[in-house]
């Protein structure tokens, strides 16, 4: 897509905004629609659109596949780790009051934030990994093919 000047300029402008929106959806999920699942998808879309317009190679330089594979597992670990932490501190599994025993409501806030972060990380990783897997196999198409 070397010659699509408009696409490249618009993408450059948009990618940052997409990431910002993903973070907003991620951390503002308590107050507005959205949460980890949606934020993860939006975050992944940012990387995918970058990979589509500027080649896959550049996208892999920004977000290398080994890192993608690691963060898929990291998200699940963050989520389950929260549960294990609350077990360790003598509460039931995934009882977020464990995080702040003096103020259970704060603990709930933090717990939801951490857990949603785990969800977001895993979803981002999985979506980007699937995109990489498909795009790496596809022969690069010229525009006339479509």
């Amino acid at each position: 897509m070397r010659h699509h000047l408009i696409l490249r300029v618009v993408t450059k402008l948009l990618v940052g905004t997409i990431f910002l929106f993903a973070l907003y959806v991620q951390f503002h999920g308590d107050y507005s629609p959205g949460g980890g699942f949606q934020a993860g998808v939006i975050m992944a879309v940012g990387f995918i659109i970058y990979g589509l317009v500027f080649t896959l190679k550049k996208a892999k330089k920004v977000f290398p596949p080994w890192l993608v594979h690691k963060i898929i597992a990291l998200g699940v670990l963050v989520y389950a780790g929260t549960g294990v932490y609350s077990l360790m501190t003598g509460y039931t599994f995934l009882d977020y009051a464990a995080i702040d025993p003096h103020h259970p409501v704060h603990g709930q806030h933090l717990g939801i934030l951490i857990v949603e972060l785990g969800v977001g990380i895993t979803v981002t990783g999985v979506m980007v990994a699937i995109y990489y897997a498909f795009a790496a196999r596809a022969p690069s198409l010229s525009d006339e093919d479509w």
Binding site: D30, Y31, F37, V76, Y79, G83, Q108, H109, I112
Partner: peptide, 27 residues
């Protein structure tokens, strides 16, 4: 929980196990 978005509260706290399962499925 005192979170304005009831969907998030239910999804992440009351139904935390379920959501953990969902993440495991995605994984």
């Amino acid at each position: 929980i005192d979170v304005p978005n009831a969907v998030t509260a239910i999804l992440a706290s009351y139904r935390g196990f379920d959501t953990l399962g969902e993440v495991a499925v995605v994984f």
